[in-house]
Design a protein around this nucleic acid. Sequence first.
DNA 1: ATCGATATGGAATATTTATTCCTTCTTATT
DNA 2: AATAAGAAGGAATAAATATTCCATATCGAT
Lengths: 289, 289
Amino acid sequence: MLGEDGDPDTTVEAPDTLETLRSTIVQVYEDLSRRMKQVATFVLDKPEDVAFETLAVIAERADVQPSAIVRFAKILGYPGASQMQKVIRDELLANHMTLAYGERARQFTAASGEADGATDNILGEYVEADLVSLNHLRQSISAAQIREANAAIAQASTVYIAGFRRAFPPASYLAYALQRAGKRTCFIDGTGGLWANQIRGIQPDDLLIAISFRPYAEETVKCHAIALERGAPILSITDSNVSPLVKGSGQVLLVRDAEVRSFRSLTATLCLVQSLVISYAFASQEHDN
Amino acid sequence: MLGEDGDPDTTVEAPDTLETLRSTIVQVYEDLSRRMKQVATFVLDKPEDVAFETLAVIAERADVQPSAIVRFAKILGYPGASQMQKVIRDELLANHMTLAYGERARQFTAASGEADGATDNILGEYVEADLVSLNHLRQSISAAQIREANAAIAQASTVYIAGFRRAFPPASYLAYALQRAGKRTCFIDGTGGLWANQIRGIQPDDLLIAISFRPYAEETVKCHAIALERGAPILSITDSNVSPLVKGSGQVLLVRDAEVRSFRSLTATLCLVQSLVISYAFASQEHDN
DNA sequence: ATCGATATGGAATATTTATTCCTTCTTATT
DNA sequence: AATAAGAAGGAATAAATATTCCATATCGAT
């Protein structure tokens, strides 16, 4: 038995870095019970969730009881789940936050002005930022994820596509291209405010592809909810694990688009969407022959 | 008085992104009391702290009372401090956490075989091709051209935007973004086949931005012709000098998008369009002041 | 200098969140 | 098949955290 509860001596262990935590989990994994394995997998898989969400949310996402998480943390030697969370949180914050800080607010100083050669090399800036985000995209999405998405599309009787505001262009492209690729496609474009009617026809053998970015458009979130309720599988393309689209989605593709002067690009998203369509087109073609 | 408490109507505001939050703070800053300024500064300065610590901790670091933070959040229109925290937290997570992906847990799962070659690295190919086309874009469009385009947009009473088929996504983005930038915009989306009616209202002091690529969509070409006939200036975004959009257009921006397995990308076009919008937004902002 | 109005600190309260504990299942062993 | 030991679920409880409220202080106007 590992890390029995009350004992004051077993508390010496308890990993205090993400790495040691991970390796500890891997070490003990085989000896864990089914539920504990479930929690273990989740912690390894989604450390950001474990770090920044409440136990109730984590529990829901991992599909376990809150108490199971507490038990798991205790097995690892922590006094409670909170302490385990803190270890992960600190590490994630330390690693990734600092990097991001190059361009912190020029604060008040000319809050409005911008002045200088401002508009002069915007295109250059944009290209630069997009290059970075594309490279990141290449690294963050695996071929397996693309394949999985293709399978989902292939299986679907009809593909519903939802995307509003900033997500509208990639969504419209996806709808257009999938249709041309011979897939039955329904683009929820919200013309005349009829989006709710459009999505309500979705069936369990269809697929909803929902695209949304902060601040998540209400319509898309609602579509997601309706699809979920109607038992249809969902593929979400969004920008973070805290997106409202994540919960309940069979597959989630995370995209980190570039940002220039607080305007967000769409390049990475579009690139991903196009890759999806093309690989779907090729896959289905191969299959047909 | 800003963001009075109980009023149900004042709750409409409340920034829902870090950027809008920041600019709101900057805007109201001068009207704040001493303590509130202290909180404001801290929020601008240490968003990570505000996002991830408890009120008690934040309060201590900012050297104020917890209640002061709550009060501050309410001034900004939030129901409480928690909601303000959530906005910041989500954004920081969205921005920086995704970076941590890519090396996600293969851990157990025995890394199922990376099967078939065909669809396997489409994303990689795409990224590669897009990188090239972006670099090309940077070299082929000059800052002067962007400036000229801005001037044309600025002068126009209303901007009409036409783009169908493959050009639809960038056109829809342009329409969306220009509108948000405060420009009167009419997007010719052809809903219900009414595009001809939409464009016929164009005036000589308006501007048509027409986007089209081979094989040039008939609708766009017709829009172009109508605008010409009605004496409105035209800015065309297209892919060659022999495009039907070139003749009669006051300005032409040529884009050479990447092509992967005979599918054409949209990245360069979108990048150009976004650059246009941003530089317009900044230019017009400067002008206002 | 006095009054009124607004802002502040901090204790009291409400709410949310974590943890515990007891009952019900599971599963392995005889 | 019966039994016992461990695991899991979930309600109850404890802890923490956020929010409210009010007495006191500060500031500006007369």
